[in-house]
């Protein structure tokens, strides 16, 4: 009998030890990756990175044009994707909560949420770049918007579903129409959560590379022309990191550092925002 106890206890200790080990292993990667980014990227961080254009191989320069390009593409994508996402999420949580359509849209939306982003790039290439005959920043922004929509739909629906029904009933009892109830009461109650969704979407697309490769392409020069190829930070990192030039690789590391910390700051902000809403 004692032997059985001992073996069960031993097995338990081994399993729990392994689970502790697995956690250390998982967290280890985060430390290793962030450590490498800081180690290789921090030394290249200077004012010139934010004020100078991408250099030709062998000379000094910065990342000004891709940074600006990324900001423009991200802003435009959010501008296109957010309204559509919020409206669709509104339908699913408010007007059509018990509709057949809502069930279908939710299922499809969840699939779009994790669809390979390179396929989205191919899609935009087929419907925008090929007919127009040239790569354009606008096509890149639309490709990113297609990625934004499912994120915003999901969070909008979830957050509106959390709004207590008595709020809606009280407002409706005042004789206000449903549209006004949604806009003036529900949106206000779910505001923090919906903002979280938009922040998460920004975090998601600001590091996306694959959908931009053959939509916005890249540009060595300063360009704010949405109708032409546009540089973006992830694509420049991709190009510079795979190049044989030391200067370019160093700039790629610096760019990677900038992107990662921007994305992590965004997602932590989103989490804090979502967390504070829960507690209040």
């Amino acid at each position: 009998m004692n032997q059985l106890y001992a073996s069960r206890r031993r097995r338990n200790r081994i399993a729990m030890g392994l689970s502790l080990l697995a956690t250390v292993f998982g967290l280890g990667w985060l430390v290793l990756i962030l450590g490498a980014l800081i180690w290789h990227g921090f030394s290249g961080l200077s004012v010139a990175v934010f004020t100078e254009m991408t250099p030709p191989p062998g000379s000094a320069g910065g990342l000004l044009n891709p940074i600006v390009g990324s900001l423009i593409l991200t802003a435009l994508a959010i501008l296109i994707g957010t309204p559509i996402g919020i409206l669709a999420g509104t339908y699913m949580a408010e007007y059509g909560r018990y509709d057949r359509l809502t069930t279908v849209v939710r299922f499809i939306n969840d699939i779009l949420l994790s669809a390979p982003s390179i396929v989205i790039g191919l899609f935009i290439y087929e419907v925008m770049v090929a007919p127009m005959g040239h790569f354009s920043g606008f096509a890149g922004a639309v490709a990113l918007a297609v990625i934004v929509i499912p994120v915003v739909v999901r969070t909008t629906e979830d957050m509106l579903l959390l709004v207590p029904n008595p709020l809606r009933e009280a407002a409706t009892a005042l004789g206000i129409s449903r549209a006004v109830v949604i806009r003036k009461v529900c949106y206000r109650a779910a505001r923090a959560g919906m903002l979280t969704g938009v922040l998460l979407a920004v975090a998601r697309i600001s590091g996306e590379t694959a959908p931009l490769l053959f939509t916005a392409l890249n540009n060595q020069f300063w360009s704010v022309d949405l109708n032409g190829p546009m540089p973006s930070l992830p694509v420049v990192i991709f190009q510079f990191a795979l190049s044989p030039y030391g200067d370019w690789q160093r700039l790629a590391w610096t760019g990677a550092l900038i992107i990662t910390f921007a994305v992590l700051a965004l997602s932590i902000t989103a989490r804090v925002l979502a967390g504070s809403r829960k507690e209040s």
Partner: peptide, 14 residues
């Protein structure tokens, strides 16, 4: 949350 390109550059160089 870390963008996949970061995994790429880290994977290639380190």
């Amino acid at each position: 949350g870390i963008p996949s390109i970061i995994y790429g550059i880290w994977g290639l160089f380190i």
